[in-house]
Amino acid sequence: MSAVATAETEYSRTRESSWGESGLALATDQSTDLETALLACARGDRNGLRLIFDLEGGRLVAVAQRILRRRELAEEVVQEAFIRIWTHAHQFAPGRGSARGWIYAVVRNRALNMLRDGRREDLVSDERLETLQDAEQMDEIMSAWHRLDRDSRLKECLGALEEMRRRGILMAYVGGYTHGEIAGRLKLPLGTAKSWIRRGLLSLRECMA
């Protein structure tokens, strides 16, 4: 009888589950796939890399483009990042962080390097103040926070921060802005911007602990 309950309960849960829940289950499956795919890369199996591309390629291009503002630069970054994923997959160990986090970090690092190397000069120059594109990017940066799951800890904890601190943190992570650029956009002295962000990060860690 208990066995009956097991199967029936399982199905009714599935039947009643909201789209969000089945999405969550999928996300879990997907992270397992990514781990498997990375390990396949480490063994020299190119299908692993293809799987990563199929599962995450669209989002990775979007993440790079959000930082670099230009599609062709974003695609170049993603190309470089996939080569690096391929050659460095053996450095991933499932015990420390997720495969997804590892993969995104590779793309983020490449994008930030390109940005810092000045390839985006025309887009981040300090003379360019509140241009239309700047405002658009600001919207995009804030929407990354708005788009987080309603019940996500990160969303809640970012929401608990004082607005300028939240803004500074999001500008850095989502938009790839430096301390100097953030200070300029928020019209704060550099030292103030730095310490606000640092304190914001501390509050965030405590909130999410």
């Binding site: 390629g57 669209g58 989002r59 291009v61 979007a62 993440v63 483009q65 959000r66 599609r71 974003a74 420390r96 962080g97 997720s98 997804r100 986090g101 590892w102 995104y104 970090a105 983020r108 990354a144 926070w145 788009r147 987080l148 799951d149 996500s152 990160l154 999001l170 992570y173 989502v174 965030l204 860690r205 999410m208």
Partner: peptide, 19 residues
């Protein structure tokens, strides 16, 4: 690694680009 996981949802929630 912990810091990375904390902020990761800001990236994974993005609308995928058409590839």
């Amino acid at each position: 690694a912990q810091a990375r996981e904390r902020f990761l949802p800001l990236d994974t929630g993005i609308e995928p680009a058409r590839v």
